Computed example of a mutant assay.
Amino acid sequence: MTNPQLIIQEHYAASGRGDLDGMVAAFAPDIEWTEMAGFPYAGTYRGVEEIREQVFGRLGGEWDGYEAVPEELVSVDDHVVVFGTYSGVFTATGKHMRARFVHHWTVRGGQVVRFEQFTDTHLVRAAMLVDDGE
């Protein structure tokens, strides 16, 4: 069996390369992916294709230079917790965003079965808001 921490490190490395296939390579077919309430893409998505379209597709289509950079990984058994920073420019407003995150990953049998995101949703949404001229 592959080390859960290595599997998650490989996900972030693929993300850094812009390699979507590599990002989802270790995802279980029935993976459950939860974006935090208040986040622009909030909700729970199930299955690789739904995550590709509703999360990664939207991030790639609506943001320039969007990154999720891991800075520290903590691994216990099947669980990996990642502390890092999001950044990018929302294309519709041209506003830059930088927000800290915590990701909780669950890996079983060499496959990612669950993901849950925690972040400052206000900072992300602020970059998406059009100034009203004030």
Results as ranks from 00 to 15, higher is better:
15 S>Y: 02
30 D>G: 12
20 L>H: 01
37 A>E: 15
28 A>G: 02
28 A>V: 11
42 A>Q: 09
51 I>K: 13
57 G>V: 02
23 M>I: 01
59 L>V: 02
18 G>D: 03
47 G>A: 12
15 S>N: 08
38 G>E: 01
54 Q>S: 15
40 P>G: 04
44 T>H: 09
36 M>A: 13
25 A>V: 00
38 G>K: 00
21 D>Y: 03
24 V>I: 14
45 Y>A: 09
27 F>R: 13
56 F>Q: 01
16 G>T: 03
40 P>E: 01
37 A>I: 13
39 F>D: 10
39 F>S: 08
23 M>V: 01
57 G>Q: 01
26 A>V: 03
27 F>L: 15
32 E>I: 10
43 G>S: 13
41 Y>S: 10
24 V>T: 13
25 A>Q: 13
57 G>W: 00
33 W>M: 07
34 T>L: 07
17 R>T: 10
16 G>K: 00
56 F>P: 01
37 A>N: 12
18 G>W: 00
28 A>W: 05
38 G>A: 04
42 A>N: 06
23 M>S: 03
48 V>I: 15
56 F>W: 06
20 L>E: 02
47 G>H: 04
40 P>W: 00
36 M>S: 09
37 A>G: 11
54 Q>R: 15
19 D>S: 10
51 I>Y: 11
15 S>R: 04
49 E>D: 15
26 A>C: 06
59 L>K: 03
40 P>A: 07
46 R>Q: 13
38 G>M: 06
44 T>L: 01
24 V>C: 10
49 E>T: 14
47 G>D: 12
31 I>E: 00
59 L>S: 07
36 M>V: 13
47 G>F: 05
48 V>W: 06
44 T>S: 13
54 Q>E: 10
40 P>I: 00
44 T>M: 10
26 A>L: 03
18 G>V: 12
54 Q>V: 14
59 L>D: 08
50 E>G: 08
60 G>Q: 05
23 M>Y: 02
38 G>F: 04
16 G>M: 06
54 Q>A: 15
28 A>K: 05
55 V>I: 10
30 D>P: 08
25 A>F: 02
59 L>Y: 09
33 W>S: 07
59 L>I: 08
